[in-house]
């Protein structure tokens, strides 16, 4: 039996000003599984996700692919976790798409030639090879999302985390993204407001409320139970 991609036990976190954001979360994501994370704005979804890449440190235990997240394993964990941020402008910080995608491998120590080769390969794979010398600012929202994903996939992560990936995307863009996600073999945790999108990319859903997991189950059931639909 393969180790779970993500295993979280008793995670708690309060911001420096004392606001409690995550109050005791237990969560498991199996290898190869896709789970949607639903919940209101401010319910602690993003705070929770940031913990999984060690970008915030709270109390409790986090294991990624069986490896416990500690100061010593931080590098290893961040390599295993691919984090696609909500705002692609935060994520694409280099002057050109190619340099951005090569940033991860380069800072892992892959060397210049190898980093560029990998970056080009992944860009072609995602169908945006023609954008490699473009500046991120001039890309469309869909292209930005793809480029962000390329920068993450180039590190061959074992787990993918998406924070509101459909923000700024038009319906065709959302469809394309869903199709792309379903082709990826990694375990995925996808925070989203969009139940339709969630249904397309995940079977199971977890509902976050006030820093806790308030319920989980099949996407439809969870959406019904928490009245998480447009009416």
């Amino acid at each position: 039996m393969k180790k779970p991609a993500i295993a979280v036990r008793g995670l708690r976190y309060s911001y420096p000003d004392g606001t409690v954001a995550v109050r005791g979360v237990d969560f498991q994501l199996e290898a190869g599984e896709s789970v949607a994370l639903l919940g209101a704005n401010g319910s602690g979804k993003t705070t929770f996700l940031l913990h999984l890449a060690g970008l915030l440190r709270g109390d409790g235990e986090i294991r990624i692919g069986g490896v416990e997240l500690r100061e010593e394993t931080l590098g290893e964990i961040r390599r295993a976790v691919g984090y696609v941020f909500q705002d692609a402008d935060d994520q694409l910080f280099m002057p050109t798409v190619l340099e951005d995608v090569a940033f991860g491998p380069l800072h892992r120590g892959d060397g210049v030639e190898e980093s560029i080769r990998k970056a080009k390969e992944i860009l072609v794979k995602l169908g945006i090879g023609h954008l490699e010398s473009r500046a991120p600012y001039h890309l469309s929202a869909g292209e930005k999302k793809r480029a962000s994903l390329a920068g993450v996939l180039v590190m061959s992560p074992e787990v993918l985390i998406f924070d509101e990936p459909t923000t700024f995307l038009d319906p065709p863009g959302q469809n394309e993204l869903a199709k792309l996600l379903n082709q990826l073999p990694q375990a995925k945790l996808i925070a989203t407001h969009d139940v339709y999108f969630a249904r397309k990319v995940a079977k199971r859903a977890v509902f976050f409320a006030e820093g806790r997991i308030a319920g989980e189950g099949p996407v439809e059931t969870v959406a019904d139970r928490f009245h998480w639909r447009l009416s």
Binding site: L55, Y83, F85, D90, G104, L106, H107
Partner: peptide, 23 residues
């Protein structure tokens, strides 16, 4: 806030304070 977001994204992708520019 933007700079914080950028910094976070850099760290998530293995940045540890020493920038390696492409030659």
């Amino acid at each position: 806030a933007r700079a914080e977001g950028v910094h976070r994204a850099m760290i998530a992708r293995g940045f540890r304070g020493d920038y390696v520019p492409l030659r």
